[in-house]
Amino acid sequence: MNLRPPHMGILLLVLMILIIFQWFYEDAESRLVNSAFTSGWFLFGSFVALAIYGARKRVPFLPIGKTSYWLQLHLGLGLVSAYMFLVHIEFRIPSGNFEGQLFVLYSLILGSGFMGWLLMRAIPSQMRSDGMESNRSRIPDELDLLREMSDRGVKEIASTETSSDILNTYFEVIRPYLHTSCGLIPSRIHPDYGVPRSLVDKIQDYVSPAVLFSSEQFTAIHKLVQKKAMLDRHAVFQRWLRGWLFIHVPLTGVMAMLICFHVLLIFGFSVGEAK
């Protein structure tokens, strides 16, 4: 995990927001007015502030603080808003239909945000541990090239007198592997051969992996398989790095609409309430 201490100014700002919220909330409680309005407005404000982070990323040319500081503020406010949310729902599991939906949505947004933060901190160093640098958009082209080269390589092997086991293994196991998608879980790499363990297990049904990978004829294809394993690993990490945003961002949009509806409903039903 690649963590850094938070910016002191942002930490103080978040703490100040928390203290102000607590003060207003307790004041409302002590005056016996409906404190849910106070916590609700604070929650609404924090939601708007959290959404502003997305807008800030679109205007990098404005001198309004680095985006990295805004991200720290986003994370800090996210935590504070979780507390505000719990205060707002009075630390209970909502029983109503609509409030239940809001609760689930909010939990998913918070959870996906936390997950995203963890992934962003953990994956880059993992991804670069093999020393290889890959460009996300070029991975499909690289894989295509690699498949083409391996087919060319196997033609050369076939043209020489060689064991049919190698060719069988190539067409039954290795070629399908070269054409499979990377999936969502990074493969465990065999320490001796630098290819996925699952592939080694499959190869064993046709030929001894030690024999295959030590074969001089197979060296070029072995290198291509190793490269495919590395590219797959990078592609999987890239999927995780971006995947969480496909939950976090759309749900935020839905949540924003539901919050507006929630505010309208509350005010609609609050007409005539004793002041």
Partner: peptide, 12 residues
């Protein structure tokens, strides 16, 4: 107004 936008934009 901000100077290098690349530096400002990096969230990490």
């Amino acid at each position: 107004p901000s100077g290098p936008a690349c530096v400002n934009a990096c969230p990490h």
